[in-house]
Amino acid sequence: MMKHLKRFVAITISMVMAFQFCINDFYLYAQTGTTDPGQTEVTSESESEPSDSTGEAAEETPSSDTGTPEPSAPVEEQPAAPVEEQPEVASTLKIEFVDVSNASVKETVEQALTSKYVKDTINLDELGIDINVEGYTLTEVKDKNDNTQVYTTETKDFVLTGNVTKLQLIFHIF
């Protein structure tokens, strides 16, 4: 009975180790796939040369160098270009209607943005948001994501500065 238990434990441990090696290889491949594989492989080869015997390392180096340049060029170019060019999608616009003393003069409007991206210029009228408040005049439009950004009240244009853009419309009593 003990003999079978020992065999079972040994087989289980070997299977777990094999699984772990597969996962580690996959993880290493995923890491080198997003970076320059040529540089990663050259580094690992130069490190393995002193530790291995000279004959084996010399034989492995030319065969891997022959295969490395072909796949590294397309892999390096494809992930780098789209990541930089993809704009961040904007999801929500929150508009606060306040007076000069920061008291609310109208209920806050929250609207989902579709097909809008961060750093796009859009117009409040295009979104169909009513900015008129009875008894008040709009005097200032502030971006709550970027306090340095102030927009004109005439054009009603603003730039999406974040995934959730927060505008504050400031009104004066007329």
Rank of each mutant, 00 (worst) to 15 (best):
M2S: 13
M2G: 15
K6E: 13
V9K: 10
I11T: 10
S14I: 08
M15D: 08
V16Q: 07
M17D: 06
F19P: 00
F19Q: 03
Q20V: 14
N24W: 07
N24F: 10
Y27M: 11
A30I: 12
A30P: 00
Q31L: 14
Q31I: 07
G33H: 11
T34Q: 13
D36A: 09
Q39D: 10
T40V: 13
E41K: 12
E41A: 13
T43C: 05
T43P: 00
S44H: 11
E45L: 15
E45D: 10
E45A: 14
E49P: 02
S53C: 12
T54M: 09
G55S: 13
G55W: 08
E56V: 13
A58I: 11
P62C: 02
S64T: 07
D65Y: 04
D65N: 05
T66D: 05
T68Q: 04
E70T: 11
S72K: 03
A73K: 09
E76S: 11
Q78A: 12
Q78N: 06
A80I: 07
A80F: 06
A81D: 13
P82S: 12
P82E: 12
V83P: 05
E84C: 10
E85V: 07
S91A: 10
T92Q: 11
K94Y: 04
I95L: 09
I95Q: 01
E96P: 00
E96H: 12
F97D: 00
D99N: 15
V100P: 00
N102T: 06
V105T: 03
V109Q: 02
V109W: 00
E110P: 00
Q111I: 09
A112G: 08
Y117M: 12
V118G: 01
D120N: 07
D120P: 00
I122K: 03
E126A: 14
L127H: 03
I129P: 00
I129S: 01
I131R: 04
N132H: 10
N132Y: 10
T137R: 05
T137A: 07
V141W: 00
D143A: 01
K144F: 08
N147I: 08
T148W: 04
Q149W: 02
Q149P: 01
V150S: 14
Y151M: 05
T153P: 03
T153L: 05
E154I: 06
K156C: 01
D157K: 07
F158I: 03
F158E: 01
V159E: 07
V159Q: 05
V159I: 14
L167R: 03
L169D: 01
L169H: 03
I170C: 02
I170T: 10
I170V: 15
H172W: 03
